[in-house]
Simulated scan of single mutants.
Amino acid sequence: MTEPAAEAPAKARRGRPPSTSLNQALILDTALAIVEEHGPDALTLRRLGTELGANHTAVLRHFSSKDEILLGLAERLIERAMDGFVPDAHWRPTLEALARRIRSVCLAHPALAALTATRVSRRAAAFQGADTVIRALRVAGFDDRDAARYYRALVDAALAVSSYEAATAALENTSREGDRLAWGREYLAASPTRYPDLAAVAPYLAQADDDDQFETILGLILDAVEARAKA
């Protein structure tokens, strides 16, 4: 009796890994590539499966849902912000440096930041970041309750400003340039009779670029934290 021929293994898409080689890191790498190339709305389980050369249900063996993938991507942002970070001996430079790192990563990956900045990743890098900020606040003299409150406020503020900038960076070039030019064009042309205070400062509005705005907001927040610490 002739033995039945062994079933040929399924062929993966050219240049893509077979589904048996899927792992969380590869899935997140691919999800990140989709978001950065095609925008946040393009990230679906079906699209992810197609890019990986596998049925989209294979992805769910590694992540329980699309939401878990989003949390993994949020963790990616924090991992990059925390990579190699060494806290300063003083609390304020520590918080300043960490806020700038968060901003830098968000601007480097604007589509990803716009998609995940409001999420709580609940993973190791997020815990490390939280521990670093809370330690700095406790060193500043705050009790545990206030350290928790100010940690939440500082992180939300840094992510809010950074994701706002990231959303601006993700705009179409025409829209982004139009908004930028408005500060030195429409605002500068505002009627001094109708808007006297706006007209008085209009020449300086265009000078307040994104870097200046971020540093101003960061300084105002940390000045308030320092004043409360002294009180």
Results as ranks from 00 to 15, higher is better:
Ala33Leu: 09
Ala125Gln: 02
His109Asn: 07
Asp143Tyr: 02
Leu70Thr: 10
Phe63Ala: 00
Leu43Phe: 02
Lys11Ala: 13
Pro18Asn: 10
Thr118Ser: 12
Pro17Lys: 15
Thr50Glu: 13
Pro87Asn: 11
Ala124Leu: 05
Ser64Arg: 13
Phe85Gln: 00
Glu7Arg: 15
Arg119Gln: 05
Arg101Asp: 08
Gln24Trp: 11
Asp83Met: 14
Arg138Gly: 05
Glu51Asp: 07
Ile134Gly: 02
Leu70Ala: 14
Arg122Gly: 03
Val133Ser: 02
Arg149Gly: 06
Arg92Val: 13
Glu51Ala: 15
Val35Gly: 00
Thr30Ser: 11
Lys66Asn: 03
His56Tyr: 15
Leu26Gln: 10
His56Gln: 11
Leu107Thr: 07
Gln24Tyr: 11
Ala5Thr: 10
Ala6Asp: 02
Glu7Asn: 03
Gln128Phe: 13
Glu96Gln: 13
Phe127Asn: 13
Asp146Arg: 15
Glu79Gln: 15
Asp131Gln: 14
Leu112His: 05
Arg149Met: 03
Met82His: 01
Ala126Gly: 08
Arg149Ile: 08
Ala108Thr: 06
Leu137Arg: 08
Cys106Lys: 13
His62Ile: 11
Thr116Trp: 00
Thr50Arg: 14
Asp88Thr: 08
Ile102Ser: 11
Leu73Val: 01
Leu71His: 06
Gly72Gln: 05
Leu137Ile: 10
Asp41Asn: 12
Val59Ile: 15
Gly129Tyr: 09
Ile78Phe: 07
Ala58Cys: 12
Thr132Lys: 07
Ala111Lys: 15
Ala8Gly: 04
Thr116Arg: 00
Arg123Leu: 13
Gly84Pro: 05
Ala125Ile: 06
Asp146Leu: 10
Asp88Arg: 14
Ala33Ile: 06
Phe142His: 01
Leu22Met: 08
Asp144Gly: 07
Leu48Glu: 04
Ile102Trp: 12
Gly53Thr: 13
Arg13Thr: 09
Leu43Met: 02
Ala140His: 00
Ala58Phe: 04
Leu112Lys: 04
Gly49Phe: 09
Thr94Lys: 05
Pro40Val: 02
Ala42Tyr: 08
Thr116Cys: 11
Trp91Lys: 14
Asp67Gln: 13
Val35Arg: 00
Leu107Met: 06
Thr132Asp: 03
Pro87Cys: 07
Asp83Lys: 10
Thr30Trp: 04
Ser104Pro: 07
Leu71Asp: 05
Thr20Pro: 02
Gly72Asn: 07
Ala113Gly: 05
Ile69Cys: 10
Glu96Tyr: 10
Ala8Ser: 08
Val59Phe: 02
Gly53Asp: 09
